[in-house]
Each structure stands twice: as structure tokens, then as C-alpha cells.
Amino acid sequence: MSDAIVSIRDLALGFDQGGTRHEVLRHLDLDVPRGEFLAIVGSSGVGKSTLLRVLMGLSPPSAGRVEIRPSRKAERTAALVFQDARLLPWRRVTANVAFGLERLNLSGAERRDRALQALARVGLREHGGRWPHQLSGGQRQRVALARALCVKPELLLMDEPFSALDAPTREGLQDEVVRIWRDQGVTVLFVTHDIDEAVYLADRVIALGGKPGEVRSSLPIDVERPRRRGDPRLQVLAEKIKRDLSAEAASREDWSI
């Protein structure tokens, strides 16, 4: 696929643990078209976070090819939002958001301007002077999102970013991410174990399964936007993915006996 921003071919990755090799991912192929909102689902431990770490260059794959093709000379190609916001507690909100800019050759005023812009985008402009511990869980996650957006990434990776939040906060943030994705033309890889969340957000949902993990299915979500929560078409798609994954889990339990 020529217009893919990410293409992964035959990726494998494992860890050595106490002398035995523990394969986490294998034979993984994935193309992500530029601008796509892709959700990645799969049970816990299947290697979703590991896949994102590979894309961030934080873990080297043991085999295969990972290519990321930025369209322009980007300041930073990919940015990651962690499950727990991981703000730096000794920095005020604005300084947390500006963190990734400190590698770049910008003046303090420019950094501040960009951080405030990013904060405004997530609706927290007034909170720039607070310490992270003074924010709610949802606000912290918004700041983490602003920190990632601030470096103007072409690829936004999100690792179960809203799983620790209560339902209303989570739904608000989901809509915010969709809005940002639409406005910024950024490609999003959104990892979640919440399948309803995946089908509501994404253009396409891929399911990882197996041990070592592989891509088990790839399902386009052909439902026009703006979407409505509880749309029966989304429910049908979610049910299908859930069935695939529970069949998968059942067969895995057989193995482990």
C-alpha cells in the first residue's frame, strides 16, 4: 500500500526470561493508511502495548520490518499517550505539555504559546498553572493528550488511554479524540480492550489474538460520522468481534490445561 504511513511486515518480538524465550508477537503484518483511525483490540497480555512500543522505537523487534513514513519533515513522527497519564509531578500543567518541545530549538515564549494552544484544544487552557495532583483523572488524561499533540505528531498512538476513567468522562474524551483526529488530519492507533469503544471510534478495528500474538481479524467500521452511541449497526459489529475473541480465548484455555 503506497499511502500507508505505517507498514509492518512479518514482525516478531520476544523476551528472554530466565533462560527461556517468551515470544510476544509473531508474523504480524499491518498497513495503516494515512489519516486512518485504527483501533487495536485484544485480551490483556496479547502484546498491544508491545506493538505500540515498537512503533515508538522503544523496543527493538527481533525480526521483521517496521516502516513509518512521515509525509513531511516532521518535528516528531509519533507521539504516545499512556494508559496512566504519566505526567511529571514536578512540572505544572503547561510545562508538562511543553515537555516534548524542549528538544526543539524554540524560544521559551514559543514553547509556552504552543503548549497553551494544545491545552486549549483539550479544554484546559485555564488549568495551565496547576500541579498534576490538582487535576481529576480525566483532566490528567487530557493533559497527556495535549502533551502528545503539542509536538504535532503525524501518528498519535494511544494505549488504553481512557480505561481508568468513569463512563461519562470517558465518553467525553472519546468524542474529543474524534474531533481532534478530524481537525488535525492525524493518523490514530488506538489500543483498547473495550470493543464498544473501538467500534464507536474507529474506521477499522483489528483484533490481536493468540500466543504469540497475531492479527486475527481486521474489520472496517462502515458507519458514517458523526456516530451515535448504541447505533445497532455498531452493536452488530461489536458482537462479531466479541464472538471472534471469545472463541479465541476459549481455545487458549484449552491450551493452557
Binding site: 496512566d84 511529571l88 509536538v151
Partner: peptide, 28 residues
Amino acid sequence: RELIEVADAFGFTGAFAKLRKVMLPAAL
């Protein structure tokens, strides 16, 4: 370690950059 990973994720990969941006303030 998770905070050190934040430094890596935002491109502060050298030992000195990591020390200055994350480890020293965290250890203070």
C-alpha cells in the same frame, strides 16, 4: 521506570538528557 519511559517517548534518549529532564527531578 514509567517516568523514564516518558523521556524516551518524547525523544530524550541520551543519558544526560534523561538525567536532567526526569531522573534528577524525580530523585530530588
